[in-house]
Amino acid sequence: MLSFEEKLAVIEEFEELERKDISLGRVNFHFEDSLYDKQIVVYRLHPNGNGFVFAGEIEDYPTDDKGMVNIRDYNADELREIIRESIDSLALSPAEKDPVMEEWLNSNDQALVLMREDDGYFVYADEQLEGSFNSYEEAAEFLTQEGFKRL
């Protein structure tokens, strides 16, 4: 297990993080350029070496209900990796993380394009917006009901 000082040294390698000292000698590190309300990447790093990193937007990490991963037993490389992934997850929009651009055709060879933009899904006929949806499932259901099939 890395000491508090060793963990601080690794975390401070990330110039995009801003240190915020909190109570009882603990430290938070914020990512001020986050595209989300969430800005704390490293949470409550304690002088005993315990602390958390936000991984709520990253797949393959077991998180608590706040999206945090305990980093008490992480080595330097593991700590760098999860911090980089956390920062990247907060720096990319949903459309950048999971892009969607699909062409759908009907039996008359008319084409519509389904695209993910920002936090929604949009259906276009050329430049004309045909519909906007909150989820991929809603958009796909609309297209299917209108007689379109994904290519």
Score class of each variant (00 low, 15 high):
70 N>M: 14
29 F>S: 06
57 E>C: 12
27 V>L: 09
60 D>I: 08
53 V>F: 00
53 V>Q: 02
75 N>G: 11
57 E>F: 11
77 D>S: 12
65 D>K: 15
77 D>N: 14
70 N>P: 11
61 Y>P: 07
68 M>E: 07
51 G>F: 01
11 I>G: 00
57 E>Y: 13
32 E>I: 09
47 P>D: 08
38 K>N: 12
20 K>T: 06
36 Y>G: 01
45 L>T: 05
41 V>E: 02
38 K>I: 07
62 P>D: 14
75 N>H: 10
10 V>W: 03
58 I>G: 00
43 Y>D: 04
66 K>R: 15
35 L>I: 10
71 I>E: 01
31 F>G: 00
71 I>F: 03
73 D>I: 09
27 V>K: 04
48 N>P: 09
18 E>H: 09
25 G>Q: 08
58 I>D: 02
18 E>I: 11
53 V>P: 05
62 P>M: 14
80 R>M: 04
71 I>V: 14
59 E>N: 15
37 D>Y: 09
20 K>H: 09
36 Y>T: 04
24 L>E: 15
16 E>H: 06
20 K>M: 04
21 D>V: 06
82 I>K: 01
47 P>H: 07
39 Q>G: 09
73 D>Y: 13
45 L>A: 03
70 N>Y: 11
26 R>C: 03
33 D>Y: 10
51 G>Y: 03
21 D>I: 07
81 E>L: 13
65 D>S: 15
8 L>V: 12
26 R>V: 04
82 I>E: 00
68 M>W: 08
14 F>D: 01
64 D>V: 09
24 L>H: 14
43 Y>M: 07
13 E>C: 08
68 M>N: 05
17 L>W: 00
72 R>C: 11
19 R>K: 13
68 M>C: 13
8 L>Y: 08
42 V>G: 01
30 H>W: 11
80 R>E: 06
64 D>K: 10
